[in-house]
Design a binder for these strands. Structure first.
Length: 136
DNA sequence: GCCAACGTTGGC
DNA sequence: GCCAACGTTGGC
């Protein structure tokens, strides 16, 4: 069964447009155990909301896991993982953090509850609500 | 094993 | 630029 996730990136570091340009990227650099464990739970075909932190603060597009977790060779030491992501589509409009925070249906999102976690699960209901907002 | 000190992330 | 939240490190 397909699972849903949210991954954060500062657009100055790696933006949605970068992903579109490259068509695929290895999501390296995660150095937090909870985030790493979430990467390891991802399956090929899972959908990942692409969130711009810092400048932007909004969900901007949907990506897809195209390769399951494998060792992150950019890590000098420790046991870290990465997955490969490819763009699926840009949202018709970005859904901002303030919209998410003010939406009663999205109050339990990890993004709201634990804002610092860079790779986090999203429920099917939350995903649907975000897509509904993007279409409004 | 506890906790103070420190570093980082990310929103404001 | 500030600071809250959270993670990590290291002394005890």
């Amino acid at each position: 069964m397909k699972s849903y996730w949210l991954a954060k990136s500062e657009p100055e570091t790696y933006s949605w447009d970068d992903l579109v340009r490259e068509k695929k990227t290895s999501w390296t650099g995660v150095r937090n155990f909870v985030a790493r464990n979430n990467l390891r739970k991802m399956s090929e075909g899972d959908e990942v909301l692409f969130y711009h932190s810092g400048e932007g603060k909004a969900v901007i597009g949907i990506a897809e896991v195209v390769r399951q977790a494998y060792p992150d060779t950019t890590a000098k030491d420790g046991d870290w993982s990465t997955v490969d992501l490819a763009p699926v589509r840009k949202l018709s409009r970005a859904v901002t953090l303030s919209e998410i925070k003010s939406n009663p249906r999205l109050q339990d999102m990890v993004l709201v509850r634990q804002s610092r976690l860079s790779v986090q699960p999203v429920t099917a209901i939350e995903l649907r609500e975000i897509l509904r907002l993007a279409a409004s």
